[in-house]
């Protein structure tokens, strides 16, 4: 019960303090719009929403979660308010779970902006809604945990932003979002396979248009392994780097 109270209040505080701030809400709306417009201008009238649907959903999640968590945690560490959490009688696991929950919810909500636009405005079909939700949730968790790993390594907010971009941009081009895995050079593919986002994007592609490359069940298993692995890696890193 005590842990539940602590968890709920950390989540509520983060939602109120960071995720529900007007700049972040507007960013969550503008970001997918901007990407859609970019594709629209690039493709002209031949714009096919199905081709970019999965990509925009994945990028909304990836950019939303990694930057938010990396920046907010670095910010709290710098202001030393994060020490309050480390001093509370809650386990590091619960602390990590509480901190990532807000960012995961933020990622899921962000992903629904392009979904609503695609489905309601462009009448884009979705092949499998259940798998779409599973993909969104797993991708949100894995991206958030990547953001946390970045936060543990950064000391300043600008460092966290730089690190985030250092990981995110190569990931976008290597995860099969714009260049299908099948079209990638053979020597590049191993790099794609070690990126968790590759599997998230594959689930999204399957659930929207069934145009995926890997096996969906394999995507789900690999993503779950990444989630668990990154979760424990974050706990290990926090204990190692922040309790010195």
């Amino acid at each position: 019960m005590k842990s539940a109270i602590a968890f709920w209040n950390i989540l509520l505080k983060d939602m109120k303090n960071y995720y529900l701030k007007p700049p972040n809400i507007s960013w969550g709306i503008i970001f997918p719009f901007a990407w859609m417009l970019m594709f629209f201008f690039r493709s002209g009238k031949a714009f096919q929403i199905e081709e970019i649907f999965a990509g925009i959903v994945a990028m909304s999640i990836l950019f939303g979660t990694t930057s938010m968590l990396a920046v907010t945690i670095t910010f709290e560490r710098r202001g030393r308010s994060f020490d309050r959490l480390l001093l509370a009688p809650i386990s590091t696991g619960l602390l990590v779970f509480s901190k990532i929950s807000g960012a995961v919810i933020f990622g899921i909500i962000n992903s629904f902006i392009p979904i609503l636009i695609s489905v309601l405005y462009f009448k884009s079909p979705v092949a499998n809604w259940y798998l779409l939700f599973i993909g969104i949730i797993l991708l949100s968790i894995v991206s958030t945990l990547l953001g946390l790993s970045i936060a543990v390594s950064a000391k300043e907010v600008f460092e966290a932003q730089t690190f985030s971009n250092f990981f995110r941009f190569p990931m976008i081009f290597l995860c099969g979002l714009f260049i299908p895995l099948a079209s990638m050079p053979v020597y590049i593919r191993p790099i794609s396979y070690i990126l968790p986002v590759t599997y998230g994007v594959d689930i999204l592609k399957y659930s929207i248009s069934k145009a995926n490359y890997l096996f969906v069940w394999l995507d789900i298993i690999v993503l779950i392994i990444f989630c668990v692995g990154l979760f424990y890696f974050s706990i290990f890193n926090i204990r190692k780097k922040w309790i010195v």
Binding site: M1, K2, S3, I5, A6, W8, N9, I10, K13, N17, G79, S81, R84, L85, A88, P89, I90
Partner: peptide, 17 residues
């Protein structure tokens, strides 16, 4: 910094369940 004095105290108390 973003929380009020009252909110800060309530939040800190919540960490102890």
């Amino acid at each position: 910094e973003e929380l009020t004095g009252f909110e800060n105290l309530c939040f800190c108390a919540s960490l102890y369940g």
